[in-house]
């Protein structure tokens, strides 16, 4: 049995893969919907984001614990960016999921809202990539 500190570090590494994988998958699915017009891809995109969003609390919680214990809560460029961009990521992910939940037909209606929603989905991939890049510096 691993000590608590190591277990939490492992939880962070595992959970972060869900957020960093599911949101790019959501972007790929929305792209497939735009290309094929097949609504299954759009629905799959929404569910990918729902599961990605659900993985955020254990990811951030374990990441915070890891930062406080392994790195003594030191503030450096990498940690500052991980905190700031992590918060932005969470807010945007929540907006995407809530928006699609409230307006299930967002992708089927013409107008600017559809493209704003698509832009948000793509921006999450960009943010996940950057956060993954920063996290990679610790490995």
């Amino acid at each position: 049995m691993l000590p608590l500190k190591k277990q939490v570090v492992h939880i962070h590494h595992i959970a972060t893969h869900f957020t960093n994988a599911l949101f790019p998958v959501a972007a790929a699915l929305i792209t497939l919907y735009l290309i094929t017009d097949n609504p299954s891809f759009e629905t799959a995109c929404f569910y990918s984001m729902v599961f990605g969003l659900m993985a955020i609390p254990p990811t951030y919680g374990s990441g915070f614990y890891d930062w406080r214990t392994r790195f003594q809560g030191r503030r450096t460029f990498i940690f500052n960016h991980k905190i700031v961009f992590g918060i932005i990521f969470f807010i945007l992910a929540f907006i995407c999921v809530a928006w699609r939940f409230i307006d299930g037909g967002i992708m089927y209606s013409p107008g600017l809202n559809k493209w704003l929603y698509v832009s948000l989905v793509y921006s999450l991939t960009a943010l996940a990539t950057y956060l993954g890049y920063l996290g990679g510096k610790f490995i």
Partner: peptide, 14 residues
Amino acid sequence: LKKKIEALVIAIPR
């Protein structure tokens, strides 16, 4: 200095 500090902050737990 900040760059060096960052490198050490990462290296110490290792």
